Amino acid sequence: MPHEPFVRLGIFLGVLAALLLAERRWPWRRASRARWPGNLGLGLLGALAVRATVPAAAVGAALWAEARGLGLLPWLGVPGWVAVPVTLLALDLLIYAQHRVTHAVPALWRLHRVHHADPALDATTGLRFHPLEILLSMALKMAAVVALGAPPVAVLAFEVLLNATTMFNHAAIRLPPRLERLLRLVVVTPEMHRTHHSEQPAETDSCFGFCLPWWDRLFGSYRAAPAAGEAVVIGLPGWRAPAHQRLDRLLLQPVRQAP
């Protein structure tokens, strides 16, 4: 897949631009753009870290496994039209499980806390992950892809979907109530994910899905809305000050104690 990086970059830029425009047209809350250098900087550093360490990433792992006939799906003789949706479901479940673990394991929470320390939400929050967390997540996905023998096209589709839906469900967009209810049946919506970014610990530890909303309902981590409703406070106490949103502070946050 020689053009895979350019396809992904083009879709990423298109989705990000569309969401930023939608935030201006149908805003939920106005978020300060002073956070953007830190959020975008983390997203760029995470992408560069992956390219520097595992240039082919998850799609490359799928191509490598396919060339050698490795993985559960080829071993079972699963046809491609079944293997693609199975891969999408399995990888999304994996990311859901990984997300829950990052909230439960203190060392991993320190990395993931960088994401939750954003004092506001918009599409750029979907890029705000520590580079080490991005590398750990990629290593996990690559191992799963090889173990499954996942079709490369399914892995590419999942990576594009995950990236797009992560930006979408962090976007500061107010959807019409009817559309919100319908979309929530098939995808994690911004209103659903805002519960996860509440300052209340019980709400932070809910709604772990990024793409599909079904895992939260199935495993008992679904909350329809924060208790405070529209008045929900976003972020983590102690980390909201503008100084904490600088890129250098965000990179060092995992080794710092809460103010």
Rank of each mutant, 00 (worst) to 15 (best):
L91V: 09
L91G: 06
T125K: 09
D118W: 11
T125D: 13
L108A: 11
L121W: 04
R110C: 00
R128M: 06
F129N: 08
H116E: 07
L121Q: 14
R110V: 01
A90S: 13
R100V: 13
I134K: 15
V114Y: 03
L94W: 10
V105F: 10
I95D: 06
A104N: 02
Q98N: 11
L127E: 09
L108H: 01
H112E: 08
Y96S: 02
L93H: 03
L135C: 15
V105D: 04
W109C: 01
A123G: 09
L108S: 00
G126P: 07
A104I: 02
Q98D: 11
R128F: 13
A107D: 00
L93W: 14
L94F: 08
L121I: 15
H130G: 05
A97W: 11
R113D: 02
I134P: 07
L135Q: 13
H99V: 04
Q98H: 12
R100T: 01
L108P: 02
D122H: 07
H112Q: 06
I134V: 15
F129L: 15
L93Q: 01
A97V: 13
L111C: 11
E133L: 04
A120R: 14
T102C: 07
E133W: 01
T124G: 12
P106W: 10
L127R: 04
A107H: 05
D118Q: 13
